[in-house]
Simulated scan of single mutants.
Amino acid sequence: MYKLIAIDMDGTLLNDRHEVPGEVKAALAEAKRQGVKIVLCSGRPIGGMRSYIDELILNEIGDYAIAYNGALVQNTHTKEAISEISLGHKDLVKLYNLSNELNTPMHFFDAENLYTPNADISEYTILESYLTKVPLHYRTVNEIPVHVSIPKIMYINDPANIDRIVQALPEDLSEQYTIVQSAPYFLEFVHPNVSKGNAVKMLTEELGIKKEEVMCIGDNENDLSMIQFAGCGVAMGNAIPEVKAAADFQTLTNNENGVAHAIEKLILEASKV
Rank of each mutant, 00 (worst) to 15 (best):
M1Q: 13
K3E: 15
K3Y: 08
L4G: 07
I5L: 10
I5D: 01
M9H: 03
T12W: 06
L13K: 01
N15K: 11
N15P: 07
N15E: 07
R17V: 05
V20M: 10
V20D: 15
E23Q: 13
A26M: 10
A26K: 00
A27D: 08
A29M: 06
A29Q: 11
A31N: 00
Q34V: 05
Q34W: 01
V36K: 07
V36F: 01
V39N: 01
L40H: 06
S42Y: 11
S42I: 06
G47R: 05
S51P: 00
S51A: 10
Y52C: 01
Y52N: 00
D54Q: 09
I57Y: 07
L58C: 01
N59P: 00
E60F: 00
E60K: 11
E60N: 04
G62V: 05
Y64N: 01
A65E: 00
N69C: 10
N69P: 00
Q74G: 01
Q74H: 02
N75C: 09
H77T: 05
T78D: 01
G88C: 09
D91H: 13
K94S: 14
L98P: 12
S99H: 02
N100D: 09
N100T: 12
M106A: 10
M106D: 12
H107F: 02
F108P: 11
E112Y: 15
Y115T: 07
T116P: 08
T116N: 09
D120F: 08
D120H: 12
S122F: 04
S122I: 14
L127H: 14
V134P: 11
P135H: 15
L136C: 15
H137E: 14
Y138I: 13
Y138D: 12
Y138C: 06
V141K: 08
N142S: 14
V148P: 10
S149Y: 06
P151S: 09
P151H: 04
K152D: 00
M154R: 00
Y155K: 11
P159T: 05
P159C: 02
N161F: 06
N161D: 13
I162N: 06
V166T: 10
V166S: 04
Q167Y: 04
L169S: 03
L169F: 04
D172E: 14
S174D: 01
E175Y: 11
I179R: 12
V180L: 13
S182H: 10
F186V: 10
E188V: 02
F189Q: 03
N193E: 15
K196V: 05
K196A: 05
N198L: 08
V200M: 02
K201R: 15
K201L: 13
L203W: 06
E206D: 12
L207S: 06
L207G: 05
I209V: 09
K210G: 10
K211L: 12
M215Y: 02
C216L: 07
I217P: 00
I217C: 08
I217Q: 05
N220D: 13
N222P: 14
D223F: 11
L224S: 08
L224V: 09
M226T: 09
M226C: 09
Q228L: 14
C232R: 14
G233P: 05
A235D: 12
M236T: 03
N238P: 15
P241N: 08
K244L: 10
A246E: 02
D248K: 15
F249L: 07
F249G: 07
Q250K: 11
V259W: 02
A262E: 05
E264W: 06
L268G: 03
A270R: 15
S271G: 03
S271W: 09
